[in-house]
Simulated assay, not measured.
Amino acid sequence: MTVWYTADTHFGHENIIPFCDRPFRSVSHMDSALIENMWKVVKPEDTLWIIGDFAFGPAAKDVAWLEMIFGQLPGAKNHLVVGNHDGELTQLLPWDSVTQLTEVEDNGKSNVLCHYPMITWNGARKGALQIFGHVHNNWLGSRNAVNAGVDVWDYMPVTLADLERRARKLPINKHWVDVEQRAAAD
């Protein structure tokens, strides 16, 4: 079983295409491409974490449409970490869990998932990654906090190994010493 992460899918959100310069002809093209990309990697026994902003726009107010999109998600378990665009109808879908922030055990490591990038979190001094979305293609993250959004991962879900590989190439957050002085000295 593999654990997959993604964020900011914005299913049904026409305006996200020009806003983030997404390469799709229409919202239906985007929605089908995102689902297809998930199915390319997420196997039936896998777990998928959506780290916020599952759907947005007029379509996200239609229960039948939301259920139709949700019903196409691959994997044995699907979890939602609530983002700023995840309304009550999205949160009421039959997710395996719905949280604002969570710690996920993956490959022997406990990492923190929150839709919003944070400056510090539980386990940060011990190497726990913070996996986030929200900022779309504006910021990849830093050495210990990585953006899992579709806009910076070719519209595909990613694994912890992918996130860790990218994190090693990112700069240390310039504010890290402001909040974790002891960690910087260790």
Rank of each mutant, 00 (worst) to 15 (best):
M1L: 09
M1S: 12
M1W: 03
T2A: 09
T2C: 10
V3W: 00
V3M: 06
T6D: 10
T9G: 04
H10Y: 01
H10P: 04
F11Y: 04
F11I: 03
G12S: 04
G12W: 00
H13D: 05
H13Q: 01
H13I: 04
I17A: 05
P18M: 02
P18K: 06
C20G: 10
D21E: 13
D21N: 15
R22F: 00
R25M: 12
S26F: 03
V27L: 07
H29F: 13
H29A: 14
A33N: 12
I35R: 01
I35Q: 06
N37G: 03
M38N: 06
K40P: 04
V41D: 10
V42K: 04
P44M: 05
P44F: 06
D46I: 04
W49A: 00
D53P: 04
A55G: 01
A55I: 00
G57T: 01
P58A: 15
P58D: 14
A59Q: 13
D62I: 06
A64D: 14
A64C: 09
W65Q: 05
W65P: 02
W65L: 01
W65A: 00
M68S: 12
I69A: 03
I69W: 02
F70R: 06
F70L: 06
F70C: 02
Q72N: 14
Q72P: 01
L73N: 03
P74A: 08
A76I: 10
N78C: 13
H79I: 09
L80Q: 04
V81P: 04
V82P: 03
V82R: 05
G83L: 02
G83R: 00
G83K: 02
N84C: 10
D86Q: 01
E88R: 13
L89C: 08
T90Y: 06
Q91S: 06
L92R: 13
P94Q: 04
D96G: 09
D96A: 05
V98T: 05
T99M: 09
L101M: 10
L101E: 14
E103H: 13
D106T: 09
G108Q: 07
G108F: 08
G108S: 09
K109P: 03
S110D: 11
N111P: 10
C114M: 12
C114K: 08
Y116G: 07
P117R: 09
P117W: 08
I119A: 14
I119Q: 12
T120V: 12
W121P: 02
G123I: 00
A124M: 14
R125N: 13
G127D: 06
G127M: 02
Q130W: 03
I131S: 02
I131G: 03
F132I: 01
F132A: 05
H134L: 11
V135Y: 09
H136M: 07
W139Q: 08
G141L: 00
G141R: 03
R143T: 10
N144C: 12
N147T: 01
A148Y: 00
D151Q: 09
W153L: 03
D154C: 09
M156T: 11
P157Y: 05
P157W: 00
V158I: 09
T159A: 07
T159V: 11
L160P: 01
L160R: 07
L163G: 07
A167H: 08
L170G: 10
N173A: 11
K174I: 11
K174A: 12
D178A: 09
D178F: 07
D178P: 07
V179T: 13
V179P: 09
E180Q: 14
R182T: 14
A184I: 12
A184Q: 15
D186L: 15
D186K: 15
